[in-house]
Amino acid sequence: MTKKEIRDNILKKRLDLDQEKYEKYSQKIVEKLRNQIKKWDFDSIALYYPINKEVDVLPLIEELLKTQKKVYLPKVLGKQMKMGRVKSLDRLIKGKFNIPEPIEEEFSSKIDLYIIPAIAYDFKGYRLGYGGGYYDRYFLQNPKTHLIGVIFNFQLISSFPTHSNDLKVDFIITEKSEIEILNV
C-alpha cells in the first residue's frame, strides 16, 4: 500500500470510531502518558490540539497549564511550524488548517519533551502524518529531545515506505500498549 492509501484507510477508521470508544481510549492513553511523563525531568513540553479524532490530550494540557511547566502547541507559519507557548486554552485562535493555535508569538525550540500525534506509527517508531511534512521539517531545524507518539492501537502498523527525513519517535503509547523504540 502507498502512504496515501494507508493514510486514507486509517483516517477513515479513526473518524468512524464510536464516540464512547474514542473517549475511553483517549482517557486510557492520557493516563499512560501521565505516568510516562512523570518519569522524565522536564520543564517544557509540546503537545497538540486534537483534530479529526486524534487522541484527546486536552485534559492533560489543562493539568500541565496549572503546573510550573511551560506548555507549547504547534503554530503554522507558511510552510514552517513553530512551537508557541500556551498559558491558557482560552488564548488560542484558529490557524492555517483551522486548528487552534497560540495567539502569542512566544516561540521556543528548546523543548524537553514532545507529544506527537499521527495518522500511523510503525513498530520502528516512524511517523506517518497528514503529508504536509511540518513535523519532519521542524525536527530537521530543531533539536530532537524526547519524542512520544500517541495513537490508537489500530493506527499502529507493521511498516510503510519511509525516507531519511521522516520523523521517528522514541516511544509510542496506545490504549493497549507502550512501546519503547530501540535504535538498532
Rank of each mutant, 00 (worst) to 15 (best):
M1F: 11
T2P: 06
T2W: 05
K3V: 07
E5S: 12
R7P: 03
N9I: 09
I10Q: 06
K12S: 06
K12D: 00
D16G: 02
L17C: 08
K21Y: 13
Y22A: 08
Y25P: 06
S26P: 06
E31Q: 14
E31M: 09
E31K: 10
K32S: 08
K32E: 03
R34N: 08
R34T: 00
R34W: 06
N35W: 02
K38H: 13
K38S: 12
W40L: 15
W40E: 15
D41A: 09
F42H: 02
F42D: 04
L47H: 11
Y48E: 01
Y49G: 06
Y49N: 02
P50N: 09
P50L: 07
P50Q: 07
N52D: 08
E54T: 05
E54A: 12
V57H: 01
P59D: 03
L60C: 09
L64A: 09
L65G: 08
L65M: 08
Q68S: 15
K69V: 03
K69Y: 03
Y72V: 06
Y72R: 02
Y72K: 04
Y72S: 08
L73P: 07
L73Y: 11
K75R: 10
V76S: 14
V76T: 11
Q80T: 04
Q80S: 14
M81G: 05
G84N: 12
G84P: 08
G84W: 10
R85G: 01
R85N: 07
V86D: 01
V86F: 01
K87N: 12
S88I: 06
S88M: 05
D90V: 03
D90E: 14
R91G: 00
K94E: 15
K94A: 14
G95A: 04
K96S: 09
F97L: 09
I99Q: 05
P102H: 10
I103G: 10
I103A: 10
I103K: 12
I103P: 05
E104K: 12
E105L: 14
F107L: 08
S108V: 06
S109Q: 10
I111E: 02
Y114A: 05
P117W: 10
A118S: 05
I119K: 04
A120H: 02
A120Q: 06
Y121R: 00
G125V: 08
Y126W: 06
G129L: 13
G131E: 14
G131W: 07
G132H: 10
G133N: 13
G133W: 13
Y134V: 01
D136H: 03
Y138G: 09
Q141L: 15
Q141G: 01
H146Q: 14
I148R: 01
I148C: 13
G149S: 07
V150A: 06
F152P: 01
F152R: 02
F152H: 07
F154Y: 15
Q155T: 02
L156A: 05
S158M: 00
S159P: 00
T162K: 07
T162W: 02
H163W: 09
S164L: 14
N165Q: 12
N165G: 00
D166H: 06
K168P: 02
E175C: 07
E175K: 05
S177G: 02
E180H: 11
E180N: 13
E180Q: 11
N183K: 14
V184R: 02
